[in-house]
Structure formats: C-alpha cells, structure tokens
C-alpha cells in the first residue's frame, strides 16, 4: 500500500520539478522548490531514511526557502523569457534521459538484499555498532564515529561556505548608513502571526535541542538540530525584525558557534591523539571504550550542531543585512 503512495509522491515530484523550470516568476519557483523538498522528504521517509527525511524537511523546505527569498529580494524576482531556440537543450537532455533510463535496467531492483551496496561495509556497521558504541541509531554511529573523517570534512565545508558568504556579502553594511533602521521591520504590525509565532519559537528551539541530544537513540543529530534551531531563530527574525534577532543572538555569538563548533570537532580528534589513540578514535577518551565512544559521539554531535546552526544563521543575516543597503 505504501508503495502506491510512493508512486504517487514520485510522480508529484516530477510534476513539481517541471513546473519549477517552466514558471518565469521566481517567487513561484522558490515556493515550488519548497514543496519539492517536502515531497522529497516524504519519499526519503518511505525509503527508510528517517534521519535524511528530517534533514531534508528542516533544511530543504525551511532554510533553503528563506535564503532563496532573501536573495530574490536583492536580485529581482522576474525571469526574462528566453531568446532563441529551445530545441538544442531539450534534445540534449532528452537523449541523456533516455541513456540514463536505459542504464538503470542494469541496476539492482529496489529493496534487493543482494545488491552490491549491501554487501561490503554496511552489514559490518550494523553488526558492530551495538558492540563498539552501544547506541541504537546506526546512522549516528556511522556518521560520527566510523566515518568521523567524512563528517569532519563536511563540517569544514559548511564552515568554509559560511566564511565565503560573509566575505562576499560583507559582515556588516559599510558606511555611515550602517545604523540599524529605527522603524522596526518584520511582522510587528500583524498581530495574529506575531502571537502565534512567538508561541512557537520556544517550542521549535526546544524540539531542536531534543533532536540534538536524542540523536543517539532516534532519528536526529547535530545536522538536523542545527538546521531546526536556525529555523526557529529565523522565524523570530521574520516576526520581530532582523535587529531584534541580532540582539537576541548577536553576530559574535554566531561566529563563535561556527568557529567553536568546527574547532570542538577537530579538538576531540586531537585529544584522542594526545591520549594515545588515533585521530577521532573515541575509545581512548574513557577507561571503558564503549563509554569513550558514546562521550566522543555526544561531544562531536554538539560541535556539528553548533557549527551548522551558526553557519546557517550567519548566512541568513548576511543576506538580510544586505537588504538595508541602498
């Protein structure tokens, strides 16, 4: 039954993608992108990837949309109609699509337990997680311990992207006009959204913290929690105006979160080395290797959460501050 639902969702996904490309109003395109992400999250959930679905829903449907909208406010929202023939690109993608579909017939079918993907390290991870870390969520175990190097790299990519955005857009608008506008922005004058939003913000942040610290036991972890907390603060910024949000969470705190989170992750690795283990081998952190692993996982997940939350919020504020400039 759920597979019929999946067929329906996948078809909707294709329709949404085509609609995104066809529309010339970029606001419509961004809103459809949000729907696309939500459909994608539902598909991920059907395919047993609860952690990924949570991430896609928080990041794709939430943060990405806000960042796109703030970029649209700066860059204009109307796309000019295309000049010239569409035949060449259409032909190219048509031929490529047929080739890829032809190639998929060599792939193992969905859910085939004998597929090559399921033969190498994956069963080992599933088997060894209870023994080495004794935490229920294998995804978190693989993410933070077995493949800690990978995650460290990804965190530094997020860090670098955040620094890049800040360099390109400027940490703060230059010139004497840098004073924050006296007129409060945001939804100050709209009573109902403001009341409801104010009611929701603490719960969103609380849920983010739950996802952060429950990540070892259920779907969740630093990446999701960082995105969810960032969404909560962005909602606050939309309701009360950007200046108010910066008063609550100042830029210095945000930068501290980004740098501190990335450094915390790296520092755990170095501490492991100092205590006689390999880089990011948490077993040496405590007398009991299993407890050491658990401790390491909790600490680096906190680092990931800090870095992601700080990076996404810094990016949002970089775009939002640019809007105040003439």
């Amino acid at each position: 039954m759920i597979y019929v639902f999946a067929l329906f969702l996948l078809t909707l996904l294709v329709i949404t993608a085509v609609a995104i490309v066809r529309t010339t109003n970029l606001f419509v395109a961004v809103m459809l992108t949000s729907i696309f992400s939500l459909l994608m999250a539902a598909n991920f959930f059907i395919l047993d990837a609860a952690d990924v679905a949570l991430t896609e829903a928080a990041v794709g449907a939430g943060v990405t949309t806000v960042i796109f909208l703030s970029a649209l406010a700066l860059a204009g929202d109307v796309e000019q109609p295309r000049l010239g023939s569409r035949l060449l690109p259409l032909g190219t993608v048509g031929v490529l699509a047929v080739l890829i579909i032809y190639a998929t017939f060599d792939k193992p079918r969905l859910g085939d337990p004998d597929a090559p993907v399921h033969q190498h390290v994956a069963p080992w991870y599933l088997e060894k997680t209870p023994e080495y870390m004794d935490i229920p969520n294998v995804v978190t175990a693989v993410l933070s311990s077995f493949r800690g190097y990978d995650t460290l790299g990804e965190v530094f990519v997020v860090f670098a992207a955040c620094i890049g955005v800040l360099f390109i857009l400027g940490v703060r608008p230059p010139g004497p006009a840098a004073e924050l506008p006296a007129e409060p922005s945001g939804l100050r004058h709209h009573l109902i959204p403001q009341v409801v939003g104010r009611l929701l913000v603490p719960f969103i942040v609380l849920f983010g913290l739950y996802v952060q610290f429950h990540g070892e036991y259920g779907p969740g972890g630093g990446f999701q929690a960082g995105a969810i907390i960032a969404t909560g603060v962005i909602l606050y910024a939309l309701l009360e105006g950007e200046a108010e949000a910066l008063r609550a969470v100042p830029r210095s705190v945000l930068l501290g979160l980004v740098v501190g989170g990335a450094l915390l992750f790296g520092a755990v690795g170095v501490v492991c080395m100092l205590m006689g283990g390999a880089f990011l081998d948490y077993s040496v952190l405590a007398a009991d290797p299993v407890f050491g692993q658990q401790m390491g996982i909790i600490v680096i997940e906190a680092g990931v959460g800090m870095a992601v939350c700080g990076a996404l919020l810094s990016i949002f504020h970089a775009f939002a501050a640019r809007e105040g400039r003439p």
């Binding site: 939804l187 709209h190 109902i192 959204p193 409801v196 939003g197 929701l200 719960f203």
Partner: peptide, 16 residues
C-alpha cells in the same frame, strides 16, 4: 495542535 495553530495563521497571513 501544532497544525491547528499554524494552518489558520498561515491562511490569515496569506490573505492579509
């Protein structure tokens, strides 16, 4: 509860 709170609010915000 969450949906009952946010749904009508979103509708109101849209109409407004």
């Amino acid at each position: 509860l969450f949906l009952l709170l946010t749904g009508p609010t979103a509708t109101y915000a849209l109409a407004n």
